[in-house]
Design a protein around this nucleic acid. Sequence first.
DNA 1: GCCTCCTTCGTACAGCGTACGAAAGTTGTT
DNA 2: AACAACTTTCGTACGCTGTACGAAGGAGGC
Lengths: 220, 220
Amino acid sequence: MTGEGAAGRPELSRGKVLQKALELADAEGITGLSIRSLAQSIGTKPMSLYYYVANKDEILDGLVDLVFAEISTPQAGGEWKEQMRRRAHSAREVLRRHPWAIGLLESRKAPGPETLKHHEATLATLRAAGFTVQQTARAYSLLDSYIYGFALQEAALPIAGGEPMAQVAAPIIERFASGEYPHLVEIATQVVMQPDYDYGNEFGYGLELILKALEPASAA
Amino acid sequence: MTGEGAAGRPELSRGKVLQKALELADAEGITGLSIRSLAQSIGTKPMSLYYYVANKDEILDGLVDLVFAEISTPQAGGEWKEQMRRRAHSAREVLRRHPWAIGLLESRKAPGPETLKHHEATLATLRAAGFTVQQTARAYSLLDSYIYGFALQEAALPIAGGEPMAQVAAPIIERFASGEYPHLVEIATQVVMQPDYDYGNEFGYGLELILKALEPASAA
DNA sequence: GCCTCCTTCGTACAGCGTACGAAAGTTGTT
DNA sequence: AACAACTTTCGTACGCTGTACGAAGGAGGC
């Protein structure tokens, strides 16, 4: 009707839709990603997207898969601890770049090919390092629990940036006077509000503690 | 207008609104909780709710606080490891009862009084056990990361129940033939699809591993 | 009787996902 | 050249969402 590219040679593709959806989610947050806003950012009309995806849920599934594709994949050859360390730090970094993805993990049920590939490679690395099947399952669950949980807490902080920690403490400050939360005050003043404090740096501490405890022998 | 209780003595209260919202979220999931559906379940009209809450976000904040109130609060007197164990298991159980709450944690910025009380009590217990301020912050972050991450993964599983694990494996089964994911198959068949397997039982394994590694002295 | 406050809620609006079907271009066949 | 078949785009409309605005009506004080 209006059309420059009405038919035959497609102007659009499923990949382009997902790519633009990723950019839009990064820019505006997951609530800013609507079919209408996505179509506008692509330069097309809402209903055109439905030729490439069945519904919005399929877009969200695709986004999760794109995010998994960004996480560094371990190789079965290398030293397992170093491989898991790299993977963990990469996963955290990716989830910090796409904080909306954490909430999506909860509701997706159809893992994409990149997701499966990633899991497969990680499991292969642990098995090759001598973990039994049982140990592998437990170690993987433990590591991912830590990674996702840390990312979740990080995403719940006010905003990324240097030291916006004064803001997270601000609403509590009002109740400071009552002396009702002395230990929260203690943590806030002596740790969180220190000028060079960055919560993200704490990730390595917990990760190393877990890796250290995860020797194949002791993970039974 | 229509009303049995039009004015003066309120039929409603903020607490009742939040209570009903909790029940509705448990019954229908967080997407089933709309202002209209909530009003209907209470037996009033949508706009009446806005006398008690400023907007829907305030309801969600209130729900998170209600959930925190359900988590067993540690006592500063007892043995810290046992206190943290109890708290962790309680938190996981509560988040399994209210799986929608996990996704809410990400987006809430205003902690409620119950949330603050809970944090305060947990911090107090760790400090009383001899953890330094720094160690306390790290230990707490580590424990909560694990708890939230585990709950998140648990919520991502198909449905609660005995052994619905065959379902989560089903979509992958199609790609079994290709031999592309041998380790996923291995885990699926030898661990996940075992008739008595319950992912929730794995929580204790990781928790004990973390608690063991968390001695105040070594947590520097 | 009236005035003021508390509480309820009817109406309306802009936004959402998407079902349905029409329109228009390209390609293949004759 | 004509026509059919297929691919791709998108206009319209429906039922849903949160909520701004303001009217309505009962309760208590004077």
